[in-house]
Design a protein around this nucleic acid. Structure first.
Length: 154
DNA sequence: GCCAACGTTGGC
DNA sequence: GCCAACGTTGGC
């Protein structure tokens, strides 16, 4: 099993929103690297740290799980969607996604500051300067340590 | 294939 | 609101 970190702006879609739905299609990702992670590398059952970006403070707030296999992001075919892509077609989709389900909400956020001040967790991609990628791989040891800090037993 | 211009992300 | 970092676009 692989581990991941997914970013979401809580004003748009928060961990609480995820907790309210059975599963959420991770639509609207329009970055090739992030797409490739969902398309080629994610497997059902993979766990992901749920990260709140553009938040005060930014940080990891819980855990989500990949549900099912990747499929084409339907918003790319919808002209009324802000994620519409005129260069994509049903026979040649450009954007792929997976669904995520809620696993856990931490009792407290683990702020980005906290990660940056940790000699081990500072190595996480999300801690790197200028890191903008919305989906990144996470080492199993980092995932485990972060859950421990959060007091989360999975 | 280079690279300047532009748009977006996201911490601060 | 600012701005550094980064990805994408398009002219050449």
């Amino acid at each position: 099993m692989r581990h991941w970190l997914i970013k979401s702006e809580p004003d748009v879609f928060s961990i609480d929103d995820l907790a309210k739905v059975a599963k959420e299609p991770w639509s609207g990702v329009r970055n090739y690297q992030a797409r490739n992670y969902m398309w080629k590398d994610m497997r059902p059952g993979d766990l992901a740290l749920f990260y709140h970006s553009n938040a005060k403070p930014p940080g990891v707030v819980g855990v989500a799980r990949v549900v099912g296999e990747p499929y084409p992001d339907p918003t790319q075919f919808d002209p009324s969607s802000e994620y519409f892509d005129e260069k994509a077609s049903e026979d040649k989709p450009r954007w792929w996604l997976v669904d995520f389900e809620h696993v856990a909400t931490f009792s407290e956020i683990v702020p980005l500051d906290r990660l940056r001040n940790d000699p081990v967790l500072e190595k996480m991609v999300v801690c790197q300067r200028g890191s903008r990628l919305s989906i990144t791989p996470v080492e199993a040891a980092h995932f485990k340590k972060l859950c421990k800090i959060a007091g989360e037993k999975l």
